[in-house]
């Protein structure tokens, strides 16, 4: 930035989307999300309906990955959208993207659900653990099927294996960092720093600007 003032003034400003260098469907979705959310905030039910159509498959996929039980996932999905509806007036674009905001609401709700319902008990068996670990590993496999996912899969592969495991268990498995420590048989402090270090690498390789 510091060394190119002449070009910067001569060239038309590039949009953040163009600059990020990932001209994918996700960008189009991000654009429409950013446009829809203020309308939702103003109480526009039609905009909400469109927003639902746009993001519900993504959010349902995310919730189901964490929650696993289909009918509980459906409930969580509904709660998440009610939450989005209620909270939309408080969304502030300068604090982050609409996409990030919505995913946070969904993920938070999904995680809280598995930690508070018997879904947690079910998976807390040895068997459940193996299943989830296998499922988590599948993330990479599945990812290859989609262009957008390949980006994520590549980013995950760039992590040290323990960083990747810790992040996958926490994000897709819904485990707390203490549980992650237990699962990976490492001290809590180590799990904490591994997650953070991994997130730094991921952030950089996914091109997220802070």
């Amino acid at each position: 930035m510091a060394h190119d003032p002449p070009e910067a003034t001569a060239e038309p400003r590039r949009t953040p989307e163009a600059r990020s260098g990932r001209g994918t469907a996700a960008d189009a979705a991000a654009v429409s999300l950013a446009a829809l959310l203020p309308r939702v905030a103003a109480g526009d039910e039609e905009a909400f309906s469109r927003l639902y159509d746009d993001v519900s498959p993504l959010l349902f996929g995310l919730i189901k990955r964490v929650v696993r039980d289909v009918s509980i996932s459906e409930e969580v999905l509904q709660e998440v959208f009610v939450e989005i509806w209620k909270q939309a007036p408080r969304f502030e674009a300068r604090r982050g993207s609409a996409h990030g905001w919505i995913c946070t609401i969904a993920h938070r709700r999904a995680v809280d659900t598995v930690r508070s319902t018997d879904a947690a008990r079910r998976r807390d068996s040895e068997e459940g653990l193996r299943a989830i670990e296998e499922k988590v590993v599948d993330v990479q496999e599945e990812g290859i099927l989609r262009v957008e996912s390949e980006r994520v899969a590549t980013a995950l592969r760039a992590l040290a294996p323990l960083q990747a495991d810790a992040i996958r268990l926490a994000y897709f498995g819904g485990y707390s960092h203490r549980e992650v420590a237990g699962l990976l048989d490492i001290p809590v402090g180590t799990a904490k720093t591994r997650i953070r270090d991994g997130m730094i690498v991921l952030r950089d390789s996914l091109g997220v600007t802070s």
Binding site: P57, G96, H107
Partner: peptide, 15 residues
């Protein structure tokens, strides 16, 4: 934001 990008790595599924 990075975490939200991770969710894009999952298969979407229409409810």
């Amino acid at each position: 934001e990075t975490a939200a990008e991770l969710s894009a790595g999952l298969e979407p599924e229409a409810p």
